[in-house]
Each structure stands twice: as C-alpha cells, then as structure tokens.
Design a protein around this nucleic acid. Structure first.
Lengths: 359, 359
DNA sequence: TTTAGCACTCGCTTTCTTTGAGTGCTAAGC
DNA sequence: GCTTAGCACTCAAAGAAAGCGAGTGCTAAA
C-alpha cells in the first residue's frame, strides 16, 4: 500500500496529539484538528490503513491508536515539523551557558542541569578527551623540606600539578637537573613510549635526584591516562516522575537506575560514529530497561581534542521536535563558546584548571 | 502514666517491626516475637497505653499501630539497639574508601555514591572549607611567548595553578622579579587585606612586569574565595522509589526535588552546631516536603580547615540503627583517612562504634 | 471517494460485597 | 491485682458486577 500525502498527514497528527496527551488518539480527535478537512470516518479508514502498514498500533480493539516504533521513526525522520525556538528560549539558553564555567567537570554538571531544565527531562552531559596525549613540559618547584611541586603542561593549555612529599631532602639543584632530564627525554611522546628502558635511562641521568623519578613518572602516567577519560553528569532524574508513563514506580526506577552515571559509562561509545543529533526510539535502544524510552543525543566538537555530548532521556512519545531543537541549539552555543575561548562572554578563557594535590 | 520497662520493650518491638515491614503492627505480631512473654491481650493493653501516651498512632480504628514522631524520637534516643557492623560490612566500607580519590569534589561524589550503596537510600555528601585561607607561596613559570603558569600554594597541601596568556611578551627575569615581589607582599595574609593600596604598592615594585599583576591578583582572589565554598553531591535518588512509602510518585518527586543539590545548599548550616550523628525525624524537618521523611547526618572533621558531612534521606521508619552505624563508620574511616593521608590505612580495629544518638 | 449512521467492543469507573486483621472490652484464671 | 482467653465490632482492602462511553469496523447512501 502506498503512503499517500494524506496518510502522512494523519500519521503526523496522531503522533502530535499523542505527544501532547499521552492517550491513545481516536479518529474523532484527529478529524477535529483545525486543518483536517475530512470526517472522522475517513480518518478512521486512513488510520486503519496506517495500522496495517505498521505505523500505528491499537492497545486494544476499542481504543484509539498510538504510534508504533516505525511510526515514530517516520515521524522523526520525515514528518516532524521544525520547532522554532522562540527568542525567549534562545536567550535563556545562551545566557545560561554564558555564565563563566571554570572546569570541565563543573561545566559538564552545569550543562546537564541546564539541558534538563530546558527540556524538562532527565539529561546527560559528557565531555571526553581523546587520549592521544603527551606532556609538553615538566616543571619542578621546590616547596619546602623534602617536598616539591610537579607541574605538567599538556596539549591544549592544560596544566596539572601535584605536590609531592618525600622522606628525603630535595635541593634546588636536584630539581633543576631532573627537570632538564625529564624535558629532554619524556616530553612530546605518548604514554606508550614510557618503556622501562626509557625510565632506566632517565634514572641514570638524574644522578642524585634519581629517587624522585618513579613517583614523578607514576603521576605523569596516571595523568595521561586520565586525559582519555570522560566527564559525565546526569541531572533532573526526578523530572521523569512527572510523566504519566512513569507513574509506574518500578518502571521509573528501572529507567532511572539505567541512566545512572555508572551504568552509562559506555554511552560515549554509542555516539562514536555519527555527528549531529541522533534519536534512538524506544526498542532501538540497546539497554533492555530502556525499551520503551527514547534517547535524543547530540554530539559536538569542543576543540582541543575534546568532544562533548548532551542528551535527554524520555518517554517514546516525547516531543522530539522541541527536544531536538533545544538540544541542537545548546550544542551549537557550546561549540561557539569553545571555538572562541578568548571572547568576552568567557572572561577567563577556559584553560585554567585548579587542582588539588593528593592523587 | 509511667513508662515502664515493659512498655519500652513493646514500643521498641513495634518500631522494629514497623521498620522491617512498613505495615501497621498488630498486637499479635508483637506477642509472637521470640522474647515476648506476654499474650497478645496484654500487649494490646500496653499498646493502648502507649497510644494514649502519644508514642503510637492508629491509622484507623481497626488497624495496627505505627510509631508517632515522639515514638521514633524515643526509639532513636534511648531504645534503639546498637547495630553491630559485620566484618563484611566494615571491610566493604573501608576498602571502598581506600581507593585513591583524587580531588575533593570527586571524593565527595564518590562518597555520596558509597554511602547510598551502603544504606540503600539516597545519600548526600558535602565537604566545606572554612574560608580563612591565604596564599603560602606564589610561583611563576614561563610557558612560552606571552604565557606563563601561575602556581599558588595554599595551606593544607593544596596547589592550584592557572595558565595565563597575555598579548605581550614575558621574560624569565620579569617573572623572577614579580614572584619575589608577590611572595614578599602577598603571602600569609587573608583575602581581606588585598586592599587597593597593597595592589598599588605591588604594581610599583613589579617594574616592567606590573601589567601582569592584575590578572594574577584576580585569579588569586577568586581562588581564595572558592576556598570557602562547599562541594556537595547527591547519589542514589532512585533508591527512594524502591520503598513502599514512595510508591506515590508525587510524593517521591517532591522529596527528590527537595534533595536536589541546589535546594540543599543551606544544609551545611543545619549541621553547624552539633557534632557527631544527628537524626531528624519526620516533622522535625524544616522543609515542608520532607515532613514524613527522616534525615540522618554525620558531621566530621577532615582536618586542614575542612569539614565533611554525610547523610541519608529516607522514610521516617528507616532502620535508624543500621543507618547511623554505617554512617558513623563511614565518617570515622574518612576522618582517619584524612588524619594520616600517607598511611596504607585501616582494616585493623573494627571499631565501628554505632554512635549513641544525641538528642 | 467521502460521509453518516449504527451495532459492537472493551477498558474504566463506580458501587456493592466479602474478607480478615486488629481492636476494645469483659469475665474467668492464676 | 495482673494476665489471658474469648467474642463482638470496625473498617480498609481486595474482589465482583454493572454501567458508561470512547472508539472501532462496516455498510449504505450521497
């Protein structure tokens, strides 16, 4: 059977109504829509066709129709009207983002909150660095009896430090020598090349400061490893409970549990290939708990070898148009913010990174 | 009427049973407890007395009894049996804490998760620094054309850094001079003494590097201000939904909303005075949404001018004994960890010490 | 091809009934 | 004088039955 224009129109109307009401949609309701020029009987026939074509479903014989997964898919891919963000919306999103945000992990948290607020759904936000990283420079600063500060400069304006304490005395000369050795031998090379042989070589060149080498290298390796890590935050889980489909507490709990930060750690992988906004409708989901829950995600580049992702989780009948619009706008604003880091809206640049000592 | 030993025993049994079952407790159930040597009729009389004394309540005439707020209070303050942590429990708590945790904010997050796991309830964790802080030392490291790294040493082994970029050239000599000036004039003094006059003086002494002073001082001030801030994390909200009293989604949502990180920002204030473990039973709560929700909190010192707090939120009938025991153990382990930061740490001495609650 | 009409279906809601845990009271027992 | 067995009474919760009404599919007429 062919999917005529009228059928598409009916399908769109059904999905739109269902998104709004969360109740099965009857032929009469569709017929009464302002720009629907046919009677309920006609609509009924069309809906019957759409059902046999697999785009709609009937919870039971005498109920209205609800969109099937295929129906949502078609809706998202073709039928969905562009949602125009109102000036107010763009304004509130931009101004929220523009507040200066200091560290990446705080930023991720903040963004998750904002996205959740903007969509009224639970939101996830993540930022991950690709781990192709190296040390650009080592600095050692004497900090007192047997303690010194190790400062690592990494690509992308990042600076990491650690206060190191040792049960032996350290002299300025030791540190000078050691930092020269480290800078000569261990900068600009990836983690993999930190071989035992290299360490050995460094140790030997370090002379009296050689006992400092292991602790320095340990920290460096750990730092480089963490560079490839992902910051992630979830916000607004409670919003899920406001939705009729999650009045069933068990269901809500299952979904909430599965969007816990721990559980989601593999999510970035999902986003790997695609760029832009991606909609995963209900059963297309990998996780079993999310079978009747949809996920909308947007990936974006934030420069400096970092990637950002924001997404929301909601019922299959969520307002895809609105959600994707807001998400995209968010992503865009964030990209912009990162693209020109020295611009006025971000007075300090985003390169600082206050660190605590204590591994 | 006098509160006899037997009445206390009955009350304790009622609370214990209610904590376990979440159902009104009948006289028969109490009478059938192993060490209850009276018949249900006798218990019935005692329960009737306890009801008129205000320690128990009846949801309706022909139902069992549930503890009133006064009943819980008495239970928590006097009746509650010490809960002995099993070796397994202490082990799992200690080993969880022992994992190296890097920064305070990450630690707070991690602890919230652990506490939530250990109690199976939503948990809050916070760490706050008293803001009496100063810079112990400034270091400036040249990092390239017109950019350098500012390193601040703060009390308590903290080191903070920031990469600063400027549209002008900076020389090693400039930085040497400047750091000498800064260390002479601006260390060991509190934020308040960063007066315009002082800045002026520093600027003048800084010579050709004077243009760097404002940006350095800005960052320093901001850092010191942040020192007084509070890190806070909430974890395991979803666990609330597993409890029968929160099957009512609206209720659950209200509670969850009110333990959102934002809302709770005033919580540290509540903990101000008291030390040790504090139990807030239901209606004793300030927030209206938490009227039938209890909060158990423990405050502890983690040295270096920092204070920690962990707490859980749960139904009024939560297992206070178990929860306070675990919370205290957590607090203790954390304190220990901070007290001897370089120690390999714990398992010896399973000195749990389920705290006597303070009224 | 569209539409009005009509019989039919079936999940909700409401009302009524039943059930049983739990109570308070009384009178007998220790 | 305490304790306990016994019994009538209460009342929420669970189950069953009835009625409602939104929605359908089909048919026949426009």
């Amino acid at each position: 059977m062919e999917l005529t224009e009228r059928k598409k129109k009916v399908l769109r109307s059904v999905v739109d109504l269902y998104i709004r009401t969360a109740e099965p949609v009857g032929s009469k309701a569709v017929a009464e829509l302002p720009d629907m020029k046919y009677s309920s009987a006609t609509i009924r026939n069309e809906m019957s066709d759409l059902t046999s074509m697999g785009y709609l479903e009937q919870p039971h014989t005498s109920a209205g129709r609800i969109p099937s997964t295929a129906g949502y898919r078609l809706y998202v891919d073709e039928l969905m009207m562009d949602y125009r963000l109102s000036i107010d919306e763009t304004k509130s999103i931009s101004s929220a983002i523009e507040e200066k945000m200091q560290r990446v992990d705080k930023l991720v948290e903040k963004v998750a909150k904002l996205v959740s607020q903007a969509t009224d759904l639970p939101a996830i936000s993540a930022a991950s660095r690709r781990s192709i990283s190296c040390v650009k420079r080592f600095d050692l600063i004497l900090a007192g009896q047997g303690s010194f500060i190790l400062v690592l400069m990494l690509p992308g304006e990042q600076v990491v430090n650690k206060l190191i304490k040792l049960p032996l005395n350290v002299t300025e000369t030791d540190l000078k020598l050691l930092s020269a050795v480290l800078n000569a031998a261990m900068t600009e090379i990836p983690l993999e090349e930190y071989t035992p042989e290299l360490l050995d070589k460094v140790m030997r060149s370090a002379g009296s400061a050689s006992s400092l080498v292991p602790v320095i290298v340990d920290f460096t390796q750990e730092t480089l490893r963490n560079q490839g890590s992902t910051n992630m935050a979830v916000a607004g889980q409670a919003r899920l409970l406001g939705l009729p489909e999650y009045r069933d507490v068990d269901k809500a709990q299952r979904v909430l549990a599965s969007i816990d930060e721990d559980t989601l750690s593999n999510l970035p992988a999902v986003m790997q290939g695609s760029n832009g906004t991606k909609v995963i409708v209900g059963p297309e989901n990998v996780a079993d708990e999310l079978k009747d829950t949809s996920v909308v995600m947007t990936k974006f580049d934030i420069g400096e070898g970092m990637q950002g992702m924001i997404g929301v989780v909601g019922p299959t009948r969520m307002d895809y148009a609105k959600v994707t619009a807001r998400l995209s706008y968010f992503a865009e604003s964030l990209s912009k913010m990162f693209a020109k880091p020295e611009q006025p809206q971000l007075p300090e640049g985003i390169s600082e990174e206050p660190k605590e000592p204590n591994k």
